[in-house]
Design a protein around this nucleic acid. Structure first.
Lengths: 353, 353
DNA sequence: ACGGACGATTCAGTATTGCTGAATCCAACC
DNA sequence: GGTTGGATTCAGCAATACTGAATCGTCCGT
């Protein structure tokens, strides 16, 4: 409430309050105002704005729509202002509500800043750290990262979410995620909004997966010319392998013959192992390979660059700093073993490290 | 949380949340973080800082010390930071706590701004308006002001506190009071802190109260020379009448003979009526006069200037604006009737209007 | 030095608040 | 017109927050 920097002199004041039984108490402010504008209610309204509906907001906050609806209703009663109005089947925020959303954002920003400063003072990671990663990163990188963080910093309350790649930047921007693992195929279509920072972590390279008896398996290294006229097992559009494959072959005047569109790496591997085609796979999160398939490096090598995405305000947070360090280490190590995650072996996959 | 101005594109997001029974839900932020740093707890810490002790803070907030202590303790557990430490018999705030207090101030400031903006949008006074006045102002001016405000603006939740004069500026500065009625004898010793605004309302004039049979009662108007060598009934030091009387007479090389020091106007009047002395009384809040006493104007007239004190941030608040208007009107009218508040009569007291 | 006072904290009990889940209502779509 | 998707309402229940008494520690007076 004090729009004043601080109270100048007068550090301790006698304070004032009515004493219910007796009539008078010297000077009293009349029952110390019950807060209008509770933070949790503001949070609810903010979430409704952000997610566009009461239901989605509830989901994001971990409540039922009923709870969110009631909280906003309470906010309406307390402020004496209409905040939500029905718009078709859903709701819309009034101008007043949007104004409140704006202050909610400022307040939540302040609170976050304070939390960061508090952790910074303490000097070691603490509090909740909410991580996110794209699927293969979540599989190939995050387990070690999380394990190491958990072991080194038991005070840290770690959360991780596997998110759809293109969502990570938005989630970070709006503060639902503190640190996300992303790659350039994810983030190129969406330029980082104000206050969002991308930190390069390393590269993930793609290799060609062949059935053991495939003619190309005879070569130690493949070139783009070798890829023409093959039958492919490929991920859907929007992934490195798919897009790289198509642009590369089309540049050479060819159209890749994709017989099987499959998102899951394991399924792709199984299809290749069954001799149904060849595939282009990134190392990260590829998983152990069964017998009957071989990997061959490709020149030039299709790669995706790995990034950590966070907000500027969090860069000084110890938990984020240490997570960045661990992520960088993990990303610079061999991203994934050739055959099995348990028994490391030097094989074809160590050629290109 | 978002230190970002707003979310750029992407207005509505699918939102994310774990579904407890099923294993996976596409993308989820992991249970939407329970707030650290609750506003009411911050408020508690802030109050402790402001009032210097848990007990005083509790009083100011309208709680028991127990409640405040528990709230701060919870804040300590939630942030994992020590906030209060025993200092002798009381407590002291740690550096971390002071940092939190600072953010609490900023947050509370934002919240107040938002409330003002909300009311401003609505265009008419609403919400809680916390007024304060020095004792005689509370008696002589506030009843009509409050009645008029209450009648014109039923939506307004009016609070009034009679406060020790010199406290009002501080109370306004720190946001415990929205609008205070003060006079220059109160506020001259304390320069207004940053963000606090004084608005002149008018003047309150002092007159001499005499027993009906007193020799001076024969004159229509008194002069300072008439005051020498009298026996006085006077308020304690720090009030207009006392200080004016002393400085004036001392300038003339005299020392006033104050036989009775009495704070209450009614008691002063009773003493004068009993013929025990003469008194100098401000009109405001003087109350009805019994038979047996008369008032005489004095030249030059001792006056105290009346001010409304508020914060800059509240000047645009409709409730404050309208209260200022009503206060100004009330102050410009005859501050108090001569004999009785019910039956107005034109008498000696209308000479000097 | 020792009782007394003051202030903060702790603990148990209670009251309030807030959330869930079912039912209801409204608008849109087939 | 029935059906779906979404928001709201209501009753019941769970969590939270406040009160009041007891405890503990520090300072002050004698």
């Amino acid at each position: 409430m004090p729009a004043v920097p601080a109270v100048p002199a007068v550090p301790a004041v006698p304070a004032v309050r009515p004493c219910p039984p007796c009539g008078r108490a010297g000077a009293e402010t009349g029952e110390g105002r019950r807060d209008v504008l509770d933070l949790s209610r503001l949070r609810a309204l903010h979430a409704v704005h952000l997610h566009g509906s009461v239901g989605n907001a509830a989901q994001a906050l971990g409540y039922t729509p009923s709870a969110v609806s009631q909280q906003v209703a309470k906010l309406e009663r307390e402020t004496g202002t209409a905040l939500l109005e029905r718009a078709g089947r859903g709701i819309a925020l009034t101008d007043d509500a949007l104004m409140l959303v704006r202050t909610a954002e400022e307040v939540l920003g302040l609170v976050e800043q304070a939390e960061v400063a508090l952790e910074q003072r303490k000097g070691h990671p603490a509090g909740q750290l909410r991580l996110a990663a794209f699927p293969s990163g979540a599989r190939g990188l995050m387990p070690r990262v999380l394990a190491e963080l958990a072991a080194d910093h038991p005070q840290l309350d770690l959360r991780m979410s596997e998110v759809d790649p293109h969502l990570s930047v938005g989630l970070v921007a709006r503060g639902e995620i503190d640190l996300a693992l992303a790659h350039d195929w994810d983030i190129t279509p969406m330029p980082a909004p104000e206050g969002v920072r991308s930190i390069p972590l390393g590269v993930d390279t793609c290799e060609v997966l062949l059935p053991a008896g495939h003619p190309l398996a005879a070569q130690d290294t493949l070139e783009t010319a070798d890829l023409a006229g093959r039958r492919w097992v490929c991920q859907p559009p929007g992934t490195v392998c798919h897009d790289w494959l198509h642009t590369t072959l089309r540049t050479a005047g060819q159209e890749p013959d994709v017989a099987y569109y499959v998102a899951e790496f394991q399924t792709q591997v199984a299809l290749v192992a069954a001799g149904l085609g060849i595939a282009l796979l990134p190392r990260l999160g590829r998983g152990p390979l069964p017998d009957g398939v071989v990997l061959r490096p490709l020149e030039p090598t299709p790669t995706r660059r790995l990034f950590a995405v966070t907000r500027d305000g969090l860069l000084r947070r110890p938990a984020v700093r240490v997570a960045l360090r661990v992520l960088r280490e993990a990303a610079s190590a061999v991203p994934s073993p050739a055959r099995c995650q348990c028994h490391r072996q030097s094989g074809v996959d160590s050629l290109k490290e």
